[in-house]
Simulated scan of single mutants.
Amino acid sequence: MLKLTTLLIGLLVCMSADAQIFQRELGDYDLKLGTSPSRSMAQGLVKPSSTGSFHGGLDLSHDSGWYVGQWAPSMGLSPAGNLEVDSYLGFKRPFDRTLGYEVGMIHYSYPQLDTLDSQEFFGGLTLLGSRFGAAFSNDPDKRNSTLFADLSGTQPFGVGLSVKYTTHRLFTPASIADGGYVSGFNDWSVKLSRPWMGIDLNLIYSDSSLNGSDCSAYSGHNSQCDGLFTFKAEHRFY
């Protein structure tokens, strides 16, 4: 693990200026190094968190379907960011051209913080180009259960649709301003996506079961507790 992390840090330093992926075949293995995520883990269910200025990772896969890798969404070089290293192991295999599956786990570690590491177990199915998955994780303060669907197999008018719903159960109820407690909450998101002239256009709506003063207890996947529309336009140069 130490050698793998050292290689990852070297990659981050050398390749942080431009987003790119270096790929090379090593016999039956396929090695990818880059500052863009080379794998959407759990068929798109588990994605790396928002990236900092310096980030990157490596991914090694075998023809049998096994893969292993590390991804660091932040090197912790800025005052607002902390070093995060996500190590994952999984198995991905198609049954035929229309159906496949994937299972695995991810270990999240934060070497610069005095906090416990967390693990996430995931599984997914691919059916006629659409993807469905579930994940279960134990964070230091809560347990999360997620369902995910990416209907890429059917895109009317060229528009992709993906949805995610997560249930969070707090180990210790959080107190709120009115004297009450929050022991759990749900959050969800819906994303519409469409490529246009080399640009990826995304419209995202996210919300949670909390509102008002209850939002002080929110610690879910979304950037905001209340309902929020977000529009993103991304263009990749590499």
Rank of each mutant, 00 (worst) to 15 (best):
L89G: 15
M197R: 12
L99M: 11
L151W: 14
L201P: 04
V13F: 11
S40N: 15
R194T: 11
W66R: 02
S40K: 11
I204V: 15
Y108H: 15
F54N: 02
A177T: 12
Y101G: 00
T115F: 04
R169K: 14
G10A: 08
L7P: 00
V46M: 06
V46D: 09
A134I: 11
G153W: 12
V163Q: 06
T126K: 00
S118T: 12
T5Y: 05
L11H: 05
S162E: 13
T6G: 12
G133K: 00
Q224W: 03
G104P: 07
G220M: 01
T35D: 06
K191Y: 01
D200L: 06
V13I: 13
T146Y: 10
T126W: 00
S50C: 00
Y238V: 01
S53K: 12
G65S: 08
Q23A: 14
G227F: 07
L7M: 09
L128S: 11
F185Y: 15
A233S: 13
C215P: 08
L128D: 08
S209C: 01
D117C: 06
L4Y: 01
I21T: 15
I9D: 09
P195K: 09
L128C: 05
H107A: 14
G90E: 00
A42C: 08
C14F: 12
F95D: 02
L12P: 03
G179C: 05
D141K: 10
L45Y: 00
F237R: 05
L11Q: 04
S78F: 07
S40I: 00
A174S: 13
H55C: 07
V13S: 13
Y165H: 11
L201V: 13
L113C: 03
H55F: 12
R39H: 11
F231Y: 14
A72T: 09
F54E: 01
D117E: 12
G158F: 02
G104D: 05
F22A: 09
H62W: 14
T51G: 10
D178N: 15
S87F: 04
S61Q: 13
I204W: 09
F157D: 02
Y165N: 04
G227T: 04
P73R: 02
T5M: 06
M75K: 02
G180L: 06
F22G: 04
T6H: 11
V163R: 03
P48F: 01
V103W: 06
G44N: 08
F95C: 00
V182N: 02
P140L: 09
C215L: 13
Q119D: 14
M197P: 01
S49R: 14
T167L: 10
D207S: 10
D114G: 01
L26H: 07
